[in-house]
Design a protein around this nucleic acid. Sequence first.
DNA 1: TTGATACTTATCCATGCGGCTAACTATAGT
DNA 2: ACTATAGTTAGCCGCATGGATAAGTATCAA
Lengths: 114, 114
Amino acid sequence: MDKYQEPLDTIFHALADPTRRAVVQRLVEGPAPVKELAAPYDMALPSFMKHIGVLESAGLIASQKQGRVRTCTLNPGKLAAAEKWFEEQRASWASRFDNLDNLLTSLQGETDET
Amino acid sequence: MDKYQEPLDTIFHALADPTRRAVVQRLVEGPAPVKELAAPYDMALPSFMKHIGVLESAGLIASQKQGRVRTCTLNPGKLAAAEKWFEEQRASWASRFDNLDNLLTSLQGETDET
DNA sequence: TTGATACTTATCCATGCGGCTAACTATAGT
DNA sequence: ACTATAGTTAGCCGCATGGATAAGTATCAA
């Protein structure tokens, strides 16, 4: 019964956690093995791996195993996709008075507040 | 026993839901009463109000009641705060080869892959 | 003043999330 | 071969989330 999840849902959900954001911030500097990524956190490894899993299934990072070491790398494209959403909103916000009707309605709203 | 929540946690969490993102996209065009915002969704009003509550406590929107009508307005500042995080990551990503050590380590990583 | 409108409050429910431990697997080093 | 390392798998737990319904409140319109 899985409901369809939009890409932005999983991306934003992945970023709504300080540990996961910090991992992204670390990977932005370059690839790193799981062990190194996990080191700063007072958390059991399986718990940490779940975070990696969330980031990976959101497409924000990729990982591959070499011997016993799994190395994670950032996928900046997904980061860009999320950023794009904000840009779009900003664009709409900037043009919210583009047509005169909107402007007039807004002005009326302001003067109605007596 | 609430754990301290960082602002970005609540902002990203608020945006990790298609209904809430759509509300933001609507409010970017200008303020609107709850009833109008809720109209497109096949959802009970109390459920919808929870989404409004999430957006509001994340600081993404504000609302005030006039008579029986509660009007919501966007707070573009919080949107900008989230966007800023992406810009920071992008900046780090762009400068990841700024010092020579990083570059060399990376090149070595590439050639090791035989 | 009666009724409709626009929320609001209270309560419930299933699922998902973030953490844990314990036990297992596979590789590297000695 | 043995041991340490680096993940992995499996299962458990408590709380938050996203939905629902039912009933209450306050305001506006006739």
